[in-house]
Design a binder for these strands. Structure first.
Length: 241
DNA sequence: AGCACA
């Protein structure tokens, strides 16, 4: 009796988890497929009642515009609250509709204002009507202005750097008297924390290492703009490769 | 279906 290994069939259960992982975690959740019969006031009341158990809700945004009907943004204070709400409430039957819950694509203004990263408005604030007309004029622009003047960075205007996700965070705009222990206490409260490195060569910056770039991103979203001192919001970016 | 905050 010889069993050939070729006869053993691997019974692989194909788990087609249809997770919407195309959007990064966000402390704001985007809800759609909401019954459009609800008035704005009633809608917000109901959403508050349903979602406040997951954590502090900073704000609920909904609009009566046709484009925005049946949708709402629920801004949580914590990303974990948003995650739990998403997990539990996606597909929930709400006034005879199964609501769809995702992370918001964008950061809410309410969050940016708390972060200190809120930028008032773009210079050219285009209404949606103007956008349509300007659409045709959307030709090539000289992309050579992408150099940011980062020679000297004033303490109030440091912007996070554009970099792909990295498990190591680059933290800057820290006050001079900021010590490594202080940074560790802040960042170690988030899962996956590994270490802090502050080089004496550059003051006011630190590198914080996590298990992976998901964990580091989560910590960043929590601590972005955190003011170690009242005039110094820390600026966090993914470290350069 | 549809990602805004005036």
């Amino acid at each position: 009796m010889t069993e050939t290994a070729a006869d053993t069939v691997m019974d692989v259960k194909v788990d087609q988890t249809t997770e919407t992982t195309d959007i990064l975690p966000n402390q704001t959740i985007y809800v759609n497929n909401i019954n459009e019969k609800l008035s704005q006031k009633k809608l917000k009341e109901q959403l508050y009642g349903l979602f406040s158990k997951y954590g502090t809700i900073l704000e609920i945004i909904s609009s009566k515009r046709q484009k925005m009907k049946g949708q709402a943004f629920i801004v949580f204070q914590d990303i974990t609250a948003a995650s739990n709400a998403l997990r539990e409430m996606n597909g929930f039957s709400f006034f005879d509709r199964n609501i769809n819950v995702q992370y918001s694509k964008n950061k809410s203004d309410a969050v940016s204002k708390l972060d200190g990263t809120y930028v008032e408005k773009k210079r050219e604030r285009e209404t949606e009507q103007e956008k349509r007309k300007a659409k045709k004029q959307d030709n090539k622009k000289s992309t050579k202005q992408s150099k940011t003047t980062s020679t000297s960075t004033p303490s109030g205007n440091v912007a996070p750097r554009e970099a792909p996700p990295n498990r190591i965070l680059f933290v800057e705009n820290l006050p001079d008297n900021c010590q490594e222990m202080m940074i560790q206490m802040l960042f170690s409260q988030f899962p996956g924390f590994q270490s802090v490195n502050m080089t004496t060569a550059r003051k006011g910056v630190a590198f914080v290492e996590y298990d992976d770039d998901i964990k580091s991103g989560l910590a960043m979203s929590h601590l972005q703009g955190f003011k170690v001192t009242s005039d110094r919001p820390m600026v966090i970016s993914f470290a350069a490769q």
